[in-house]
Structure formats: C-alpha cells, structure tokens
Simulated scan of single mutants.
Amino acid sequence: MAAYQAPRKIECVILDWAGTTVDFGSFAPTQVFVEAFAEFGVPLTLAQARGPMGRGKWDHIRALCDDPAIAARYAERHGHAPDDSDVTRIYERFMPLQIEKIGQYSDLIPGTLPVIASLRAQGIAIGSCSGYPAIVMEKVAANARASGYHADHIVAADDVPRGRPFPSQALANAIALGISDVAACVKVDDTAPGIVEGRAAGMWSVALLLSGNALGLTHEQYLALPETERQAARARISAELAPAGPHYMIDTIAELPAVITAIEQRLEAGDMPQSCAPRPLGAMG
C-alpha cells in the first residue's frame, strides 16, 4: 500500500516574468495600458495602470474599467460606462501595441542568470507563468532565450480557463514538469495575484518587493535610491503584499537561493507550505 511521504527537497521553482525575471520595474504592460486607453480618449496614469497588475490582461482592463474614476472618464467620452464589449475593444487594441513594444522591455533582471544556474545545479526544474497571453509570451520567451534564459515550461494566461489569482497556471506547471508534490514547489512573483496563485496551489510563495510593479522604477533608478528611501519602499510594499500571504519577501530574484535553502530546512523539519505562517522580511531560517 502506498504511504504519503512529505517532500524534503524543492523540485521546482515557478517564476513570473515581468518584474521577476525580465523588465525591471514591470514597464511593458503598464505603459501599454496607458497608451491603449489613450487611444479611446481616456487618460490613465501609470499608477492607475499598475493597480490590478498580475491578472490576465483582459481581466486587468476589466478591473481598470470598474474603477469609478476611469469609468466616469470613459462615460464622459463615449456616453456610457464601459461594458464587457468595450473592455474587449480596448483589449484588442492593447494586444498589438503590447506585441509591438515588448522588445523595448525585454532585458533580464540582474541576478536572474546566476540564480537559474544555481537552481539547475541543484536539479530544480524551472517553471514559469505570466499574465501575458500566449502570443505575447512567445516573444517574451524568445527575447529571454537570446539573453541566455529559458524556462523548462511556460503557462500563459490564456492557456488555462482561469488565470491568477486562481492556481491553474502554477498547477499546470507542476503537472507538466512531473513534480511529485506541490509542497516541493516555490512560486515567485512581484504581484499580489501571483502570490495568491502560489498559496492557492499549495506551494511555497515568495514575494519580490523592489524589482517589480509595486516599486515601478527602472534598475538604474532603483540603484540610485538612497538607502533610507529604499527601506521606506520596502516597508510600504511588504505591507501591501502581506495580505496575499507570501512565506518570504525579498528584494529581487538575486536573493532567491537563500530562500530555497531556508525552505528546504523547513521541509526537513516537517513544515508544509499549507500550514506555515509567513516569515518576516529578512527571516531566512
């Protein structure tokens, strides 16, 4: 008779794309949302565009259109509040803009390649998922491969019936990669929906605080931040992401190997992600 044995080692890390492994500051989707809405005569700030980040792009536009201020601007211009058909029209304009401009925001986030090499040296598979649809992910992945990064598996937002914050994309990675137990998986993301996705899938979940959507700075701007401002941003973003329930919160992917070590220590001690409370920022054991 088969008997359940809890995992003791991490088998798979599932990485987000924009703001996690590529596009420091997550500019590719946010800037294009601003441009797409502008073509419909509806001004949108970058901060507003960033609000629902992490969801599939149609759902992201729907969430923007549900914002009372944005809906009022749309109604003033078009004579009615935006319904699903309006959302679809914006999405259909957003998509070619996104495909056209994705190459402008394709640089790998510093630290990505050494971290991937470290994970592979430990026999850890690299899964990935994104709020991008498959047609955009093809271009994102091609650009990443040209820079030396490839994932073992990619699940786009439209590859599953329900994207983030539902667990489908993370679970699809685990199935495709033949992982023995979801507790042997780590989901890494810079947005609340992506963090909840990992938790809903029963995986360890790691939040990235400073490389992604919440900080919204280029790498150069991030490096130029005085330490006091960096600490303030870290505190603000960790408070924003805490309700999503990440087990760990770190600045960028460069710190991930230490988290993997900490998680494996917890697995050895019998801890499981479904029953473990998050650890405070900086707690690695």
Rank of each mutant, 00 (worst) to 15 (best):
P52G: 02
G79L: 07
I260H: 03
E35S: 14
P110E: 00
R55S: 05
R93G: 15
T252A: 01
E76L: 15
A156V: 15
C12L: 06
A69L: 11
A172C: 12
A69E: 02
S106P: 06
T261N: 06
S180T: 04
G51H: 10
A144R: 08
V196G: 06
A144M: 09
I70R: 08
P29N: 00
I124T: 05
V206H: 02
G111M: 08
I10M: 03
E100G: 13
M203R: 04
R50Y: 14
A18V: 05
A18R: 11
G41D: 02
I253C: 07
N173T: 08
V188M: 03
P68L: 13
C185E: 00
C276N: 13
Y91D: 02
G194D: 01
P43T: 09
D59N: 08
R93Y: 15
R93H: 15
T21S: 11
H150N: 09
Q98G: 13
I250W: 02
P273N: 01
T218A: 03
G198V: 03
H80L: 06
I253L: 04
K139T: 11
R236S: 08
M203N: 04
V42F: 13
C65A: 11
A117T: 10
P110S: 01
R120C: 03
I154C: 04
D66W: 05
N143V: 07
L208R: 05
P133Y: 11
R55A: 04
I250D: 00
N173H: 09
A157R: 12
